[in-house]
Design a protein around this nucleic acid. Sequence first.
DNA 1: AGAATAATTGAGAATGAATCTCAATTATTC
DNA 2: GAATAATTGAGATTCATTCTCAATTATTCT
Lengths: 145, 145
Amino acid sequence: MYSSPEYREFRDYLHANGMNVTPERMEVLSLVLKQKGHFRIEDLIRNSARRKKSISRATIYRSLKAIEQAGLIKSIRSIHDEKIFEIVKGHHDHMICELCGAIIEFYDLDLESLQDKICDSQDFLPSRHVMKIFGTCSICRNKKD
Amino acid sequence: MYSSPEYREFRDYLHANGMNVTPERMEVLSLVLKQKGHFRIEDLIRNSARRKKSISRATIYRSLKAIEQAGLIKSIRSIHDEKIFEIVKGHHDHMICELCGAIIEFYDLDLESLQDKICDSQDFLPSRHVMKIFGTCSICRNKKD
DNA sequence: AGAATAATTGAGAATGAATCTCAATTATTC
DNA sequence: GAATAATTGAGATTCATTCTCAATTATTCT
Ligand SMILES: [Mn+2]
Ligand SMILES: [Mn+2]
Ligand SMILES: [Zn+2]
Ligand SMILES: [Zn+2]
C-alpha cells in the first residue's frame, strides 16, 4: 500500500519537515490521487465522508496544505473564482472556456522561454508562473451556429 | 464634477444596463480613481468611512462589481491570495516578488501574439488572459549579498 | 406636478470557505 | 512502558462576501 512515487515524495516531505506520517495524511493523498483532472476540496470531503472511517474537514484541509507544499498538487481558480486543485504533472498553462467552464491544458516551449527572456530583461528571477487564457472553447464555438 | 472619461464610461455602462446613475455609484468610482496602484476593498471601505456621508459596505461591494463589469477595474490575487483590484489601463501582465510582495507590471507584444497563435492552434477564441510570474525582484536579489 | 412604480441603499443577518481551539487520541522518544 | 510530543476531530470562530427587506430615492405615467 501507498508505494507509488507520490506517496514516497510525500513521506519525504513530511520527514524533512519533522512531521509524522499518519494514516490520515496518507489517506488524504490517496483521495487526491483518485481524482481525475481538477477537483475541489468539497469533493474530497464528500468522498471521505462516504467511507468506513471518515477524516475530519480540518484534517483534510491541513493535509491538503501539506500535500500542496510538498509540490504534489497546486491550486488555481475557476471562472467562478472557486478554488480548485490539480495534481502537478509537468508544468502547463490553462485555457478556460467562459461558456462551459472547460479547462484545457497546454504547454508551449516558445512561450516558456520567452517568459524567461522577459524576466531576464527586468533582472527578475522567476520561480514559477500562472497563465490563464479565458475565451471560448472549440466545442462552444461550434455550438453557436 | 465626475467628468473624466472613466465616469463617462461608467455612466454609459449603467445606462446600457438599465441601471441608474446614483451619487453612491459615482462616489465609489471616485474612491477607486483616487487609489494608486493596487488596492483592496477594505481600503475603499475605510476611505469611505472617514467621510461626511459614508457609503455602506454592501453598496461598495455592489458598485465595485458594476465598475468591474464596466471594464474599468479588474481583480487579481496577491501572494497571500488576497483579492486586490487595479485600474485597467492598457493590458499588462505581472511579475510578483515572493520576498517583498512587489508587483511589477509589464507588457510584451511578442508574448501577446504568441498567445494568440497558441489559441489559434487549439481553435480557442481568447477574450482575455491573466499571467503572473512569481519569483524574486531585482531589489530583493541584490539585498541577499 | 403628484401619484404610482421601480430601483437603490443601508444595517444587519446569513452564508460559506478556511482557520483555530483544545481535549482526546495516537505516535515517538527515553 | 512511562513521559513527551504530534495529530486529530468536533465544533467554535473568523473573515470576506452576499443576502434580506424595510426605508429612501429616482423614474415613469397621467
Ligand atoms: Mn491543469
Ligand atoms: Mn497591475
Ligand atoms: Zn466551452
Ligand atoms: Zn522583492
